[in-house]
């Protein structure tokens, strides 16, 4: 989407004092963060700290117990069913396992949202799908294949093509590099960076991948113990004195030296 209001002052995602409990466990104990338009924001943190849950809360797929989350100018806590659908239409998501529809080909996967959400003719929809497939760097022949016939990296790309099918304003990625080899992971990073550049997409990425944190993220927040314990550029976060962050990035203080892939 072209930056129609380039100087919009409001953050794309603004979470304030979010508290979430799952069963008896307190997962979020006052999470506050801002994601600004056109930036790549990475949420890091140890396993099970509630990163993916926060991503689901941004999409109104899970309701926090208290606090406020504004996404694209709209409060999602207590949002109605219709508004939630409307909001999700403006967001593209790639879940950790890709979650492509296994009984549809890649091209059908990508054109499904186009069919449901636009009133374009079939041929134009097919062309748009082919364009999105090319945009994520997949060969045209991949469009005719089923997800089970693709490698992990290609499947991730196909999921990304589906996520950007409707030109979302906000792209949410859950562990995009999990299960990819370093070179595919790096290619995927470049792809996200490219989309961020050309489409002006705001990207919210949940990750544990150090390479991605160093190379891709404009802004990093570290979630641990239910709170954001460090935030800033990756260099700033890595200099944090918080013990959890120190344990997470041993020996990478101020630079990617030891952590670089």
């Amino acid at each position: 989407m072209a930056p129609t209001v380039p100087s919009a002052p409001e953050p794309v995602i603004a979470a304030r004092d979010v508290h979430t409990r799952v069963g008896a466990d307190v997962v979020h104990a006052g999470v506050t963060l801002d994601v600004h338009r056109g930036r790549i924001f990475a949420l890091a943190g140890p396993s099970g700290c509630g990163k993916t849950l926060l991503l689901r809360e941004v999409l109104a797929l899970h309701v926090p117990d208290s606090g406020s989350i504004r996404v694209l100018g709209r409060e999602v806590v207590g949002i109605g069913h219709e508004e939630a659908l409307e909001l999700r239409r403006r967001c593209g998501v790639v879940f950790e396992r890709g979650a492509l529809f296994s009984s549809l080909t890649v091209a059908e996967n990508v054109s499904l949202p186009l069919r449901e959400r636009s009133r374009l003719g079939r041929r134009v929809r097919d062309e748009l799908a082919a364009m999105k497939i090319a945009l994520v760097g997949l060969p045209a022949s991949a469009g005719l294949k089923y997800p089970s016939q693709l490698s992990g990296g290609m499947r991730r790309r196909a999921a990304l093509a589906r996520a950007i099918a409707l030109d979302p304003e906000l792209l949410l990625l859950d562990e995009p590099s999990a299960g990819l080899d370093p070179s595919s992971g790096r290619e995927f990073e470049e792809l996200v960076r490219h989309l961020n550049d050309v489409l002006g997409l705001t990207v919210f990425v949940v990750t544990r991948d150090l390479g991605l944190l160093w190379n891709l993220a404009d802004h990093v927040a570290f979630l641990a113990g239910g709170q954001i314990v460090a935030a800033g550029t990756m260099a700033e976060v890595s200099r944090s004195d918080a013990p959890v962050v120190r344990a997470y990035f041993p020996g990478t203080r101020g630079g990617p030296a030891g952590a670089r892939r």
Partner: peptide, 18 residues
């Protein structure tokens, strides 16, 4: 500000859907 979009669309190299 829309020129970039045209660039994306043409650079994809797609002429017609397979």
């Amino acid at each position: 500000e829309h020129e970039a979009l045209l660039g994306i669309v043409t650079s994809s190299g797609v002429v017609a859907a397979p």
